[in-house]
């Protein structure tokens, strides 16, 4: 088996240096040259480095075809008016200009940010809060953990159907509850003023369990000696929480915030099932707009540009988060 160093020396040309004297002899005598070529070829084919490359070829091919090619292709067509017709052409930055000047796309950017801002902080806080509660020795802990995690393993389609029924303005559970409290019913997903809020509520319901499990794992990794020492020093529960739990959980929190943010940016299923970007474009996010533009209107060039904007937005938010933390994760 080729070691890493062997493969590296092969790639860096050490092999060729060793054979340089043979090459010099071959230059004077053609038959020797042919023998040397064959010898050199057989050395290459026999080398561990070549074997390593051979085995790497397929994974690299798959990685390139399935990961890099689509990203590069997407980037390239974002500068074209590609619409699956044979007559597409390069349009420079026109797609990006359209995104930054057209009200529909600007609204999609605003909605996406609103969706993220409405979901991630509250969702992270609630996940941590519930994880902290369920990390205590309370009765029925396993039941509650399972209950909070269940939405994560529930199909989006099923979730959407149930919530559609709950939020049905005519006789849905939510309005019935409001009615019993003497409050007026809401339009929920059918009212532009409440549709995004409703979507945030449903997303929070579906996402808290997953993050809760990550926080639970983090909480259980904090050495109990720290809490014992704090207790001996007279620290109160809230002090232990803020001065031990929160700092010790910061890498986990960062992980949750970053992955949750990315997940919300890319969230599609609920919007597809529940609102399709409506009413009045109030839940029209960048991801929905990519789908609508590319597959609804077949404007793949513009759709690609929107997805690049989405990617850049995610990067712009994720990089400062990482820099702020100052740690690898």
């Amino acid at each position: 088996m080729a070691t890493f160093q062997e493969a590296r020396s092969f790639l860096e040309g050490e092999f060729w240096e060793k054979d340089s004297s043979m090459v010099a002899t071959a230059a004077k005598n053609p038959s020797v040259s042919q023998q040397n070529d064959a010898y050199r070829l057989s050395r290459i084919l026999d080398s561990d480095g070549f074997t390593a490359l051979l085995f790497l070829f397929i994974p690299l091919l798959i990685l390139g075809a399935l990961k890099f090619y689509p990203v590069v292709f997407n980037l390239v067509i974002s500068f074209t008016n590609y619409d699956l017709s044979p007559n597409f052409r390069f349009v420079g930055l026109r797609n990006y200009q359209e995104i930054l000047t057209n009200d529909v796309y600007l609204k999609a950017i605003r909605n996406t940010l609103l969706y993220v801002v409405g979901t991630v902080p509250i969702g992270t806080f609630l996940s941590l809060f519930i994880a902290t509660l369920l990390n205590q020795g309370i009765r029925g802990r396993l039941f509650f953990r399972t209950a909070f995690y269940l939405p994560v393993v529930t199909l989006v389609a099923a979730t959407a159907l149930v919530w559609r029924w709950i939020m049905n303005p005519q006789g849905g559970l939510a309005n019935t509850a409001l009615d019993s409290l003497g409050l007026p019913g809401l339009g929920w997903l059918t009212d532009p003023n409440t549709a995004m809020l409703s979507l945030v509520v449903i997303t929070l319901w579906g996402g808290i369990g997953g993050n809760m499990v990550i926080f639970l794992a983090g909480l259980q990794g904090i050495p109990s000696e720290l809490y014992e020492a704090a207790e001996i020093d007279g620290a109160r529960a809230w002090q232990s929480f803020f001065y031990i739990t929160i700092p010790m959980l910061s890498p986990v929190t960062l992980f949750v915030v970053v992955t949750y943010t990315i997940a919300i940016f890319r969230s599609f299923g609920l919007i597809f099932m529940l609102t399709q970007g409506g009413p009045s474009l109030s839940t029209n996010t960048l991801v929905w707009e990519v789908y609508q533009t590319a597959f609804g209107y077949l404007r793949f060039g513009l759709g690609a540009a929107i997805s690049v904007v989405l990617l850049l937005t995610i990067l712009l938010l994720s990089i400062p988060m990482r820099l702020f933390q100052g740690e690898d994760f």
């Binding site: 084919l45 074997t51 051979l54 085995f55 070829f57 397929i58 091919l61 075809a65």
Partner: peptide, 21 residues
């Protein structure tokens, strides 16, 4: 072992290329 691995590698590459055709 080396010959076998190499043969397996060649076969893999050939199949990979055939699949991508």
């Amino acid at each position: 072992r080396r010959t076998f691995l190499k043969f397996a590698g060649y076969t893999g590459v050939a199949l990979g290329l055939a699949a991508c055709a």
